[in-house]
């Protein structure tokens, strides 16, 4: 790659590319055919970069066709702190709602994965960085309780780079305790919890429900960690090593069981479900 490639790209863009047919890959910088990316579940055919996937697309890819039944759809965030920075939380919420068509960052429900019934939760990183406020915490706790009551394995896919949502203050922080408490009961009931980490998962999300799976799986090259890299750099006053807080870093340090690319995710989970059905 390099200069030649670059020239080719600019040329194409000018002369041949009708708008919206091509995507610039954030991983390799190449222009890639959008349709091909979509066929591969939004993975770059050149470098395997995993593009952001909306929660609904993810559900479509991971669960058997038409099997997903969404639950607790009426939960809507409020603004308990009347939070106001340079923008108000209310405005931020409205904007995210408009952009995503979601009420908040989390979707939960039940469905089948290769014909096995599962409870399923997901956070969408497009909605305020998938951060966990009261609604996300409540939904995840409810689906966990549903899984416990109905003896279902639980899968939570997190794209929660925003950690615990600042705009809901302490209420967000204690969603960490709420989700973990529900997961503890699910655990004690002898049921399987698989946590799928997608780009990105940080802070209070990673330090609660997202890291305590019986099996933790990450997508390749996702950014996953606790403290934001800039804060760490400011504290230790030196540069962070290459690949710090990536899926690969986590695997090397023993924090996750495996890295699985998006295309194989469903079949890998099915294998685990077979071993851990209870």
């Amino acid at each position: 790659m390099g200069w030649e490639n670059f020239k080719r790209i600019t040329f194409r863009r000018k002369k041949e590319v009708p708008g919206g047919l091509w995507l610039k890959c954030k991983g390799c910088g190449n222009l890639v055919y959008k349709k091909k990316v979509e066929e591969k579940q939004h993975v770059c055919p050149e470098c395997q970069y995993h593009f952001t996937l909306s929660a609904s697309e993810r559900i479509k890819n991971m669960l058997d066709k038409g099997s997903f039944k969404e639950m607790h759809t009426h939960l809507t965030p409020t603004d308990p702190l009347q939070f106001k920075g340079s923008k108000t939380y209310k405005d931020r919420l409205e904007r995210a709602q408009k952009n995503t068509g979601m009420k908040d960052a989390g979707i939960v429900g039940t469905g089948n994965l290769e014909s096995r019934p599962v409870a399923f939760g997901i956070t969408d990183s497009r909605f305020l960085m998938g951060s966990m406020g009261s609604v996300v915490g409540e939904k995840l706790a409810r689906i966990t309780e549903h899984a416990t009551a109905n003896r279902l394995p639980l899968i939570i896919v997190s794209g929660s780079g925003g950690g615990a949502r600042m705009d809901e203050g302490m209420l967000s922080l204690y969603q960490m305790a709420k989700t973990c408490a529900a997961l503890e009961r699910h655990d004690q009931a002898g049921l399987l919890y698989i946590s799928i980490l997608t780009n990105p998962v940080m802070g209070g999300a990673f330090a609660s429900y997202a890291s305590v799976g019986d099996i933790n799986i990450a997508e390749p090259k996702a950014i996953i960690g606790f403290t934001g890299p800039r804060v760490i750099e400011q504290t230790i006053r030196r540069e962070l090593p290459a690949g710090f807080q990536t899926s690969e870093f986590l695997l090397e340090h023993g924090m996750i069981d495996m890295i699985v690319s998006r295309e194989n995710l469903k079949s890998e989970i099915a294998k685990i479900l077979e071993y851990c059905a209870n």
Binding site: H74, T76, P77, G133, K178
Partner: peptide
């Protein structure tokens, strides 16, 4: 722990 959080839930 379960009761912590504020949201609205109307159909």
């Amino acid at each position: 722990l379960r009761s912590i959080g504020e949201f609205s839930e109307s159909s």
